[in-house]
Write a protein that binds this DNA or RNA. Structure first.
Lengths: 260, 260
DNA sequence: AAGTCCATCTCGTAT
DNA sequence: ATACGAGGTGGACTT
């Protein structure tokens, strides 16, 4: 594993190290006083101050101030980094083609530069999202109600996609809008638009409903609902079904399954 | 300026340094092999691997893998960080109250730990956003067309806010939807909803239009428009006006003004 | 504290 | 390459 760190290097030493690191596709950490210019989708400049610079082997380039989660300036993965010396200062440039974006960092006083070929072969395992909810409901439709049979996922309508379409035990059409977190008014409006879309557009579901004189039921499925959204669904004749998103990590699930 | 760096410390040395850094409200950078658990709005776990950990004095806590702009795990500003030793490993915990979220990092092999009181008194100066466009149009309404008079900004309707309301030279009502980047179908749909909202709701603008037999004109204002959005606009009788977002930094603007 | 909307959103995914 | 939607969106602002 290649790993180097330099404290208080001069510009030339720093340049050499950065050059070496970029060639080796290493991850670079720099703590230094710098000045930043960005031009691309927007335009920005940041005057002299100390920041932490992170350059990743995938081309991602981050500049962090001592506040906030978000970097003050950045470039996305696949950007090309180059370094050069000018006026005895180290410059770093990160360039992106489409859209055309250029980040330029002038570096004055360097506290340290580190580079390393990071060894990390793990990916984040996560749960608790809308997709997990959707998977769970497709697997266990009785969570919605007895007799519910889901038929279609991501059904395209004018204003978006209906998360799950299905039928109840009486063959009424059910339109499910899923939210992994507390549902607000916007979720109800979204569902209402989808219902309008279904009713206003020519489609097989609508034809079948009309032919069989069945209803179209709108269901908002979420762990909980805000008060104003609750009021709105009552006005709109939409139903609310409380369902918690699954909080089971894939790894745990696999272990559970392996147990059988 | 306080600044310390330790290479390959053992767990106890690392614990001491982190403790000191947290007490001094310093910014901490750690490059180490770690394992991460998160529970809160969602749930995640990340197995052993090398990462870069950043802890900021405002409480922000970031864990970066060697890919992507976004941290693999994080906590927002105002989170509380604490550290402890267990089974001869260093643990870092970052805790948030509302919503309740806990990030736990177990650290095994540390390549280096650095802390420093970062000196940075500059804020990012930027331009090229929707708000800048809005400001510019309020100042120079002729950019939209001769005789345009803007009256209201951020006018609230059912599905959101109309960016700018105004009148043309013939006293027709104008509804402007601004986009700082290339406008897509979603922008047209948004504007269409706002127009419907205006027409379906009881409001003074509508009354005046009806009384004076004036039209309501919908205008999408953006630097450019996508092909499918252009088609939709023509169907809907909405107009498109090409306006570039201003690309002038406040600092530059001041200088320009000072020149007079 | 909670809601709303913009963002150099980023990131995945389907087209 | 482009389009579209989700996100532990973050962050600024309003209520």
């Amino acid at each position: 594993m290649k790993y180097k760190i330099l404290e208080k290097p001069d510009s030339e030493q720093a340049y050499e190290l950065v050059h070496e690191a970029l060639r080796k596709r290493a991850t670079i950490v720099i703590y230094a006083c710098c000045k930043v210019n960005y031009e691309g989708r927007a335009l920005s400049q940041l005057n002299w101050g100390e920041r932490i610079i992170l350059i990743k082997p995938d081309g991602a380039f981050l500049i962090h101030q001592e506040k906030k989660v978000e970097p003050v300036n950045w470039q996305p993965p696949k950007s090309k980094t180059r370094s050069y010396l000018k006026d005895d200062n180290l410059f770093l440039e990160s360039h992106r083609r489409t859209p055309k974006e250029l980040l330029t960092v002038e570096i004055r006083k360097i506290h340290f530069i580190n580079y390393a070929n990071i060894e990390d072969y793990e990916e984040l395992e996560q749960a608790g999202y809308e997709k997990d909810m959707s998977d769970m409901i497709m697997e266990k439709p009785h969570l919605i109600e007895e007799g519910f049979v889901p038929t279609t996922r991501e059904y395209s309508v004018e204003h978006g996609f209906i998360d799950i379409l299905g039928k109840d035990k009486d063959n009424n059409l059910m339109v499910l809008e899923l939210k992994a977190r507390k549902a607000g008014v916007s979720a109800v409006k979204q569902l209402r638009r989808y219902l309008q879309d279904l009713e206003n557009t020519d489609n097989d579901y609508l034809k079948e409903c009309n032919a069989q004189k069945k209803k179209i039921r709108g269901l908002l499925v979420a762990p909980s609902i805000m008060d104003d959204a609750q009021e709105l669904i009552e006005e709109e004749g939409i139903e609310f079904v409380a369902v918690e998103p699954p909080r089971e990590l894939k790894r745990d699930k696999k272990t559970t399954l392996d147990a059988f």
